[in-house]
Amino acid sequence: MVIAMDNAEQAADTAAGNDQYLTFRVLGEQYAVNILDIKEIIEVTQMTRVPMALAAVRGVMNLRGNVAPVIDLAERFHATSTQVDRRTVILVVQLEVEGERQVMGMLAEEVNEIVEIEADHFQPAPEFGAGIRQSFIRSMAQVDGKFIVLLDLSQVLNIDELSTHHEDVESATVMEVSVD
């Protein structure tokens, strides 16, 4: 049974965990994830594009002999590719998907810092105006007078959405248009 949490419960749940978060930039906006979710931070490496994959799947990389998909967060959030430069990094995370560990990379413009966020600085995500899909937001936090979006990695890196073939998305769009 899946129990859906409202935004206030998600914010409180986030606050109850570890209070250290890694902040990073995507298209100039600051985001954060719990430091415990990050396995490592690596330089951008050679990636192989996957035919017919969604644009957000930048490719796959060899991570110590294992194939790991790399998700371009800019593409996932705003349909704009990250411009790779010397500051661009891949944040390597490990998620549990259907009982198995899945290692994935997230392409970000740069890493900023590790911040500690007090429990009383967490706020629920707004219903609109956050700039990205609300389901991607676990909560918001105010740090040094600025808001940071804390990402819900289970939504941002949702395997079912990301494994949809490019053709499936195009045909679904065509079907939507023809229905109207």
Rank of each mutant, 00 (worst) to 15 (best):
V2S: 10
V2T: 14
V2C: 08
I3P: 00
D6Y: 07
D6G: 07
N7W: 11
N7D: 13
A8M: 13
A8Y: 07
Q10V: 02
A11M: 08
D13M: 12
D13H: 13
T14D: 09
G17F: 04
N18H: 10
Q20G: 05
Q20T: 13
L22D: 03
T23N: 01
L27D: 12
G28K: 02
Q30V: 15
A32P: 10
N34Q: 04
N34Y: 01
L36A: 14
K39H: 06
T45G: 09
M47E: 00
V50E: 04
A53E: 06
V57R: 02
V57Q: 02
V57A: 03
R58T: 03
R58C: 01
V60Q: 06
M61T: 10
L63N: 14
L63G: 02
R64T: 01
R64H: 07
G65L: 06
G65C: 02
V67S: 06
P69E: 03
P69G: 00
V70G: 04
I71Y: 03
L73H: 08
E75N: 12
R76M: 01
F77A: 08
H78A: 11
H78P: 09
A79L: 12
A79Y: 07
S81R: 05
T82N: 06
Q83G: 10
V84H: 00
D85K: 07
R86K: 11
R86P: 05
T88K: 08
V89K: 15
I90D: 02
V92C: 10
V92S: 06
V93E: 00
V93Q: 09
E96M: 15
V97S: 14
G99N: 10
G99A: 11
G99K: 12
R101N: 13
V103N: 09
M104F: 02
M106G: 07
M106A: 14
L107P: 01
L107N: 01
E109S: 05
V111M: 08
I117P: 12
A119H: 12
D120N: 15
Q123A: 09
Q123N: 12
P124H: 07
P126I: 02
F128K: 12
F128Y: 14
G129R: 11
G131N: 07
I132H: 07
S135F: 04
R138K: 13
G145M: 13
K146A: 13
L151E: 09
L151P: 11
D152K: 05
Q155N: 13
V156T: 03
V156I: 02
N158G: 04
I159Q: 14
I159E: 13
I159P: 04
I159V: 15
D160M: 05
D160F: 03
D160W: 04
L162C: 08
S163G: 03
H166C: 10
E167R: 09
E167A: 11
D168E: 15
E170V: 15
A172G: 01
E176N: 04
E176K: 03
S178Y: 04
V179G: 03
V179T: 08
